[in-house]
Write a protein that binds this DNA or RNA. Structure first.
Lengths: 241, 241
DNA sequence: CGCCCTATTGAGGGCCCTCAAAGCTAGTGG
DNA sequence: CCACTAGCTTTGAGGGCCCTCAATAGGGCG
């Protein structure tokens, strides 16, 4: 039977088969669906949160506004992710969660999540592990932004998004993915101007690595893209690699 | 009575007073002390780890080597930190842990830690929280490297290190801290060349913000440094701020 | 004393930024 | 059906931040 918690189950089952009692515990977590318009914030930096949100459809990002007025995006999230799971133990948000296109989120009360984790160390450690992978991805973004030139950084970003989307079955057989990002979004993530993002995408296209229409990324030559991005998927810690 | 786990207790007690049974549980965690020479790796990317290490003295960092041959440092750690706590659930390391000066580490078997967390949800959630703060710091580094110019990024880094060191009582009354970093280390962390690091430090000195002798950072004008770095300590999630 | 690592300073160049303007697409309303 | 608007994309030109190359000075240690 279809259940609101299914995207999360699919995600966790990638790592390990869940015992029936754990599945049941999770299914008893209450969930309120909230639909977000493009650009709408789910929760803002400085606010206190009493729920964590599972991405059901669409894409969201986490960002901070800098003193200069620039928006720094720190992560992108796809269905199955829980972008603000950290708010379970860090009450006050240190960043904002925002929809990129239209997105649907499942809000789960902290109260329910804590009850589940208290009863099942297995589930707690699986979710803890998810937050640790989250952190591993942050580490790679640091390496990406700090250590690689624009072309390489963008190739790495595309490799990561395709790999994560493939792990939850969202990449078509033609290696395409509906990446609902504007060039401005990519720039805000990589610390590049929109002008330079545009020129860099063009270069990746000219290299035959990708094709890019607004909202649709297709990988034409995976090996070339991986090499350009110096990409090693080990940090994603998926069984498949 | 002094105990090998004391630095960790001091750290956790900042967040919440620990009940006696939790203290006892922690004190029963076995610990092997390992002394590291400057530049020595504790554990390398790709290896499987069976322990997590508490920093007892000195400084360590986490880094990755990029395809270009550059070293990207992703975090600095001071006494009381557990840089590789994530290895408890992510068996294979996706980065290397390395001593910056001489450092002393307390190695705790994963087996023991898991037993403690299984018995005390309170301790598990406290340590989970620590890994979430770790991730929050990564997010800020992304914002710092991606969105701020060199002068501002360096000021922010200094603000963060001083704030974290102060939280565990390592900053003198003269606002100085033994920051065992070379200019090369700072450059590898911020994605700057050593030449530009040198010029940027000089500028911060000329602005009257800091004094810098190799291995000793002193903050002369906290407000000016904070403003230059666009620094807001909220993301460190310490009670004191 | 000599070696090695780190810090410091100069000069020239490249990556990426800012400013500016035009084309494209989708949605809206007449 | 088409004008109109708004947002995103694309391209050009010039400039600044930061890089690389190079060389000298300083400091700890065998």
């Amino acid at each position: 039977m279809a259940h609101h918690i299914d995207p999360l189950l699919r995600r966790l089952n990638i790592a390990s088969a869940l015992p029936g009692e754990d599945v049941e515990l999770l299914q008893n977590v209450r969930m309120t669906v909230r639909n977000l318009a493009p650009g709408e914030d789910l929760i803002r930096a400085g606010q206190v949160s009493h729920f964590s949100a599972l991405v059901l459809s669409g894409m969201v990002c986490r960002y901070n506004m800098l003193g200069s007025g620039a928006r720094q995006i720190m992560s992108f999230h796809i269905p199955g992710d829980i972008p603000d799971l950290q708010s379970l133990f860090l009450e006050r948000m240190d960043h904002t969660v925002c929809a990129l296109g239209p997105a649907s989120m499942g809000l789960m009360p902290h109260e329910d999540l804590e009850r589940v984790f208290r009863r099942s160390f297995n589930l707690a450690s699986l979710m803890w592990r998810e937050t640790l992978i989250d952190a591993a991805i942050f580490r790679q973004w640091i390496a990406n932004i700090g250590g690689r030139p624009a072309l390489s950084a963008m190739a790495h970003l595309f490799c990561e998004m395709i790999s994560r989307a493939r792990a939850v079955g969202l990449v078509g057989s033609d290696n395409s993915y509906r990446l609902a990002l504007t060039q401005q979004d990519i720039g805000d993530a990589l610390g590049l101007s929109i002008v330079h993002v545009n020129r860099t995408i063009r270069k990746l296209r000219e290299m035959g690595c990708i094709s890019w229409e607004p909202g649709l990324l297709t990988v034409l030559n995976w090996d070339a893209l991986r090499e350009a991005g110096d990409f090693d998927p080990a940090y994603l810690h998926t069984k498949a690699g």
